[in-house]
Design a protein around this nucleic acid. Structure first.
Lengths: 225, 225
DNA sequence: ACCTGAACACCGTTCAAGT
DNA sequence: ACCTGAACACCGTTCAAGT
């Protein structure tokens, strides 16, 4: 029976379970308390249902992870339609990184699951842009992996360390204390260099480096087609 | 009491536990059966000791993972001493990738732990090479992350998918069957492009693209120091 | 059709007891 | 000093029973 807001309510006043609602709650829980805190039991508690009720809408934890990562893929903003193909590829990469910053658990799960429908759609868009860019098919193929690898790798390195539950700054200080500053002077200098560094800027610098490199690689190979 | 091979043997004929021996067995187990199959119990079984005996030499599973990944870092071959700095950086990246191919579980663990002594030594070597390369400190810093990100990201994308326990080729076929070949024609073409692709060659192509890009970026910025 | 508790086969780790 | 079994607080999931 729908109530005044159009939400179906059961006779005992509780809202019935829903696959989208389960996935939304799982994403929210992982965002708030980390992927390690997401168990079938904790998720059921959050939803106010029995643990096993979840299995009526989700095959298991693995399939839940797939659904979560596909929900995250749906959040990636489409590039503006008036952009040149390679500029759109760039915008897509930046938008993907932004979504990963909101869901720090996502890159690791993204990696371990075959793409779902939303992610397939995003890949199709990206591959279409690369095909329309004028790059040769070989270089376009290379570019697909180079760009995605950069986005995913950067997110993983940036986030997985920050994630460790504990205070990240404290961990870095503890690490610095354990390193011999004369034997490992480059190491110490690098860490200090880090504390001013703007990761967003360096992400885009390397992204442009890759995109420019692809164009040049294509020009060189184009000499002898 | 040492036996004829110099190995200490206890009165009951069993070899006493050893931190290095534990770590070696853990690496071997993860290599052979995957990281998921490595539990404190399964590792103790492999070593023929009680589960809790491990805790006399290792703080817990997390510290064991750290020790495992540092053992893997120790396997990375040093670059030939006569190489130019950036060529040595390249060799180091290729050697790291080779070690990751042997220990497919390592990149994921590598990512989630602060570096141990062996890895710190490798980082110091790499940072020293970048400092000696003539690149400006900012570009060298950028290059450190761009290169490592490439190595780690490539290994993760390549291996984590192959790892899924099941037959990888079958998973790809199943995936292809679930994709609409007209709506997602670029996707299908990409997957087919994959089946001939030599990942080792494309890894080095993008690596060179990054290294060349760093040099050029440095030249452009060097115009106005 | 949807929900659910009990039960099973696992985890990592604490603790107290052994030698 | 090193080893270890029992026990605790968790997992994901199967199954049979409910409505």
């Amino acid at each position: 029976v729908p109530d005044e807001e159009g939400v179906v309510v059961r006779s005992d006043g509780r809202v019935p379970l829903d696959r989208p609602r389960i996935v939304r709650a799982a994403v929210a829980l992982a965002d708030a308390r980390g992927l390690a805190a997401l168990s079938m039991r904790s998720l059921a508690d959050e939803l106010g249902c029995g643990t096993m009720s979840l299995y009526n809408h989700v095959a298991g934890k693995d399939e839940l992870h797939s659904a979560m990562v596909d929900a995250v893929a749906a959040e990636i903003a489409d590039p503006a339609p008036d952009l040149a193909p390679l500029a759109a590829v760039r915008a897509l990469a930046v938008a993907t990184r932004e979504v990963f910053l909101v869901h720090p658990w996502a890159p690791g799960v993204w990696l371990r699951h075959l793409p779902g429908p939303e992610r397939v759609q995003g890949m199709e868009l990206q591959l279409g842009l690369l095909a329309a860019s004028g790059l040769s098919p070989d270089i376009a193929h290379l570019g697909f992996h180079a760009v995605n690898n950069h986005v995913l790798g950067y997110a993983l390195q940036e986030l997985e360390l920050t994630m460790g539950g504990d205070d990240p700054a404290a961990a870095i200080q503890r690490f610095l204390g354990s390193v011999d500053p004369v034997e490992h002077r480059h190491m110490v200098a690098h860490v200090h260099q880090h504390l001013d560094g703007e990761t967003a800027k360096s992400f885009e610098l390397v992204l442009d480096l890759i995109l420019d490199g692809l164009v040049r690689l294509d020009e060189v190979n184009g000499q002898r087609p």
